[in-house]
Design a protein around this nucleic acid. Structure first.
Length: 360
DNA sequence: TCTGGGGTCCTAGGACCC
DNA sequence: TCTGGGGTCCTAGGACCC
């Protein structure tokens, strides 16, 4: 065997719950549910549920009120503690970065890609798992692939506390008959649109008419989805530090806001915080976005370019408030968010962007 | 049952320009 | 009556990720 480049995807097992159990060992083996303030009667959702809690049908994104109904009497609800998870995350990443010969690309709190040239990727994966466990007491799983897409998907088959290899050789054996929804970057809406074209499985996507996909999804996404059916994707692991394009603050109100003055006050507060996050990076803000959720299912986002890039807080806040004044009167607001979009440093913009939303 | 909070990227369509 | 052809920029909204 000769050394060739591999992509490893490292994903922490039930990361947030595991960090909590580490600090409170008596929680081990119990259904643990982390979300919001830890009060299951509040408007908030589950951040992470331990494997024990998942057996009761509780999972990420579920409203806490629902989780409370499904949970057994011995379930423990805990508040989200960002600082603790960030510290644990930093320990994990530092440990992985120290492995010999690897390039590390962080894609989230609890997951990253490792690029490594080796003739034995399983050996590197084992070493990574052992190192993380030794340094942090936390377990992880590793996907091994010949590109990022396959590595990322492989991890699901390795969980928990294991590893799995997915490459061009076994792609269709493993994924061919599965639903398109299992592909990274295909959500429920795209799954549905594909199904309307008779495309339900991964293999059907790979075999689909390319022109049809381009006309349904546009030149970029159409081509991307088509390749995704065959497990195609980028294989370069990039360790250049991530630069945020925007910062936002949003809040779900326990009681809906009903008056214009309440709404304006909330916009001010959120706008100041979002703006300050940008200011802390020393980068001018060029756009403001307001996100509003009116009672059930209606979320609106309204963006405005500022007349010029600004580092003046009041200029930004005033722009956010101005959008707020255009909102329909008499509607109760249950969620409000303000996003500040920053000027990007001029760069020779990398040609290979992966259109999977969020950090990659 | 009724939905966090942090993000990124893509597309469509209109305005405007030559 | 019918309606260039190319381009850029902007807004609004959709979709997805962790």
């Amino acid at each position: 065997m000769s050394a060739v480049p591999w992509v490893l995807h490292v994903d922490m097992d039930q990361f947030i719950a595991a960090v909590e159990v580490l600090r409170q060992p008596e929680l081990a083996g119990k259904p643990v549910i982390i979300g919001g303030n830890g009060d299951p009667t509040e408007r908030a959702v589950v951040s992470t549920a331990s494997y024990e809690a998942r057996e009761f049908g509780i999972g990420s994104g579920m409203p806490l009120k629902i989780a409370a109904r499904k949970a057994p009497p011995d379930a423990v609800f805990l508040p989200v503690d960002h600082a603790a998870y960030e510290a644990a995350s930093a320990d994990v990443m530092q440990t992985l970065r120290a492995l010999p010969g690897v390039v590390l690309e962080i894609i989230g709190w609890d997951e990253c890609f490792l690029g490594v040239t080796t003739d034995d990727p399983e050996d590197v994966a084992s070493a990574a798992r052992a190192a993380v466990l030794e340094a942090t007491g936390l377990h992880c799983s590793v996907g091994i692939g010949d590109n990022k897409i396959r590595a990322k998907i492989a991890t699901e088959f390795g969980k928990p506390r294991g590893m799995f290899r997915l490459t061009a050789d076994n792609w269709f054996d493993v994924m061919g008959e599965r639903e398109t929804r299992e592909l990274w970057g295909v959500g429920s809406r795209v799954q549905k649109r594909l199904a309307e074209h008779g495309i339900r499985t991964v293999r059907e996507l790979a075999d689909a008419d390319r022109a049809g996909l381009l006309s349904e999804f546009g030149p970029k996404m159409g081509a991307w989805y088509h390749g995704l059916g065959s497990g195609l994707g980028p294989s370069v692991v990039d360790d250049t530090p991530w630069v945020a394009r925007s910062h936002s603050r949003e809040t779900t109100f326990q009681q809906n806001l009903t008056s214009a003055s309440q709404i304006e006050a909330a916009i001010r507060e959120l706008a100041e915080q979002a703006f300050d996050d940008c200011l802390a990076e020393g980068r001018p803000v060029i756009r403001v976005h307001l996100k509003v959720r009116y009672a059930p299912f209606v979320t609106k986002t309204i963006g405005r370019k500022l007349t010029e890039p600004t580092q003046d807080r009041e200029t930004f806040v005033a722009a956010a408030v101005a959008i707020g004044r255009t909102l329909d009167e008499g509607r109760e607001v249950r969620l409000l968010g303000v996003r500040a979009e920053m000027e990007m440093p001029a760069s020779g913009d990398s040609a290979e962007r992966t259109p999977v939303r969020g950090r990659i």
